[in-house]
Design a protein around this nucleic acid. Structure first.
Lengths: 140, 140
DNA sequence: ATTACAAGTGCAAATTATTTGCATTTAAAA
DNA sequence: TTTTAAATGCAAATAATTTGCACTTGTAAT
């Protein structure tokens, strides 16, 4: 499966120069559909000479362009995933394994919220994350 | 309204020594029912000689004891609120003003999740935060 | 009350995560 | 090709949090 071209298309569409680092990082998010931290990405791209600062700058740019989004999973460092699809997670509080899901009733709740809120009339986004203990960790 | 004694009771009940810093920090969380960062707390207690490191250690201890909980609101630093009541938030992405709410259908969703999940059979907790633009910020 | 000792604290230094300044390189438009 | 704004590497700076250690203090037992 050749995806390199798709990556270049996306970058061009967003008005971003197609560089090695950006293509690699985009590829990583597409291969592994998991949550990634700057350090995880750096571990994969440093052999090609990409700097950690570039990883951070790329994550910032991608987030601004709506290519990726930050996920609140109570981890020490910022964690990202591909954006564009509605998605939430259950995170194991012992081993941090993550499972995704997308069925949530956020629309119902947010319309109710807006009805009752005295400060807000626009909701852009939400984060809905569950925390639990996964089956393997539960066996100990 | 005298609450000092209540604070001492709670600390004793949790097996924690009743110290100046702990009483002050507990009082802060009880007065202001808002989200607090270590720095916010430090600003209030440093005049009494309490160190920032102690603030961090106290927050950790209180969280372990279930007195406070960490809230995921995409802020640079960790943010806490009193625990013990089910609570979620809408945060303004411009000015960070926060409004609370507690009505969410998390039980429905979590039971559905557990039914479908291959990795999890225990859910302990969840975080459900909305992000939007508040009315004052919307006027600009 | 006094004592004893673990628990708690202040202070400074160490870590970790992230950001920034600047000189150099490079993708892509002309 | 040439041009140039955008992107990068490197090193240093900043921000948030944690830790080691010697000193202090709350509290349980005397």
């Amino acid at each position: 499966m050749v995806v390199g071209c798709q990556h270049m298309e996306l970058l061009k569409a967003k008005g971003l120069k197609s560089t090695q680092a950006r293509r690699d990082i985009l590829a990583l998010f597409n291969e592994r559909h998991t949550l990634l931290r700057a350090e995880d990405i750096f571990a994969k791209v440093k052999k090609k000479g990409t700097d950690l600062a570039t990883v951070y700058r790329t994550l910032e740019t991608f987030e601004e362009q709506g290519i990726i989004r930050k996920v609140d999973v109570r981890s020490g460092s910022d964690v990202y995933e591909l954006a564009g699809h509605h998605h939430h997670h259950i995170v194991c509080t012992k081993c941090n394994i993550v499972e995704g899901f997308n069925d949530c009733n956020a629309e119902d709740i947010s319309s109710m919220l807006l009805k009752n809120s005295k400060n807000f009339n626009v909701i852009q986004d939400h984060s809905f994350e569950f925390f639990g203990v996964c089956k393997s960790c539960a066996k100990r």
